[in-house]
Design a protein around this nucleic acid. Sequence first.
DNA 1: CGTCGCCTTGATGAACATCAAGGAAAGTGG
DNA 2: CCACTTTCCTTGATGTTCATCAAGGCGACG
Lengths: 270, 270
Amino acid sequence: MLKPQLQTVTGEQTVRFNPALRANNVEPLLKETSCKPCSILGLCVHGGNAQDPASAGHLGEQMRPLHKGDYLFRQGEKARNIYVIRSGGVKLLYTSQDGTEQILNFYLRGEILGLGDIESGVHSCSAIALETTGACRLPYEKLQSACLDNPRLYDQLFRIASREIAYEHGKMVLLGQKQSEERFAAFILDLAGRNKKNGYSYSEFNLSMSRHDIAKYLCLADETISRMITKFCSEKLLEVSKRAIRICNHDRLAKKAGLLSQLPLPAYMN
Amino acid sequence: MLKPQLQTVTGEQTVRFNPALRANNVEPLLKETSCKPCSILGLCVHGGNAQDPASAGHLGEQMRPLHKGDYLFRQGEKARNIYVIRSGGVKLLYTSQDGTEQILNFYLRGEILGLGDIESGVHSCSAIALETTGACRLPYEKLQSACLDNPRLYDQLFRIASREIAYEHGKMVLLGQKQSEERFAAFILDLAGRNKKNGYSYSEFNLSMSRHDIAKYLCLADETISRMITKFCSEKLLEVSKRAIRICNHDRLAKKAGLLSQLPLPAYMN
DNA sequence: CGTCGCCTTGATGAACATCAAGGAAAGTGG
DNA sequence: CCACTTTCCTTGATGTTCATCAAGGCGACG
């Protein structure tokens, strides 16, 4: 059995620039000084193009750390910002009147959320910390004025939104066409890919979310997730101990996830 | 029984400016001359702000009419444009390796598609005309350079993307939480709202898509759609004859759709 | 008139939700 | 440190929704 890992996420560590990784991300644009707090993200990563006069100033505002269960924002509140996750992660939760929950997304270290609520001006979901989480708030208004000086920054922003739409499409296919086993397999692979993108292990990591969260994300019952885990373990695809996961057989897992189609489900293929 | 309507869509008709409608759309920005072909959309509707020096030139390119079943673009092709539907409508179809289909969205008169594929540069889905359809192609590259002169145009574009994300979230909740009856009811109401937005009747219109398409959109079987229609008709919620639909009892339909939550599923509430 | 596409209706079956019970770990308060 | 509760997870038994299978109707079109 696998013993739970201590995967401490050091929020302030220097992130080395990785060209291969960069190809999949939007290009960094803001200069190092301009948005130090969110030093992770494509949007405002360190080491941006120095000859680019992106004198955008200090756009972002680093927030005080959130603890597990804290709200980054709440469903129904006014939405004026986008957020960058610097460390930890959040779940995007929609709660309907009758109390049923759906998790629309998880946003982990280096990812951006809140794009979908800018146009309506209201948060349609809550964002809740999965663990201790550092985030950075970027008022859209400030971003706008920064973009007046530097329209290419808007291109960035649009591309991030574009990517999010593609991701949603992939998820829609996953939920619409695939059954529980394939959904869960794809989910694990997605997490693994995102973990790797952050410089961590692809095959071994800790889930930052509960089984319940996974279930609500994949539109399944909690029990179904449990059964999937048991099943995958007995099939030697995974080793799982509490929230620690090891992928034992990537190929068979990918086959289960049905990711062999020539056309990638956008965000599950990195 | 309802007799099928002849709802001819006159693509070139003058669209009167409606402030109430405008509030829900993005603001028009381009001047009348700049993008005449796509005279419908928020993005380039006639009557934009005249003092705005949006000398963007003729961005769009009107395409020759598509007939039912024609492709606007194909899954796997390079994606360099966004498209505006001037009349008619298309379905966005994802086909997986094993041949199963999923319809990710319908885009009707006045709506924009293709945003999600810009960042990856590849069309992850095909867009297929539901009926005779006029569309306008906007090369993203041209849009970009136009935006250099007029960054506010990028704001538009971003807001459209933002809205699309919100719409996807709503759909996700619909598919994840609701069962067949609620899905179908929400779908009908969504169509009704979009029909109204175009200046047509809210309560009486023609479906431009087949039962099969609806089924694939709502992630249900064709037969289930049939049964829903029969059921709703017998409950006096709808009158349906072939593809002609009349909404007889909006309130009860909305109740079935579960749209009473204080927080709107974004695009189903207009 | 026959064929085809599209739709409807009924019968059966499967996947997954729900219900129910219990275990293990972590926090809580004494 | 130990009872106690609570949370999270697992496992088994039953039930429900919807998919699938099968057949036939109806209009369109050649």
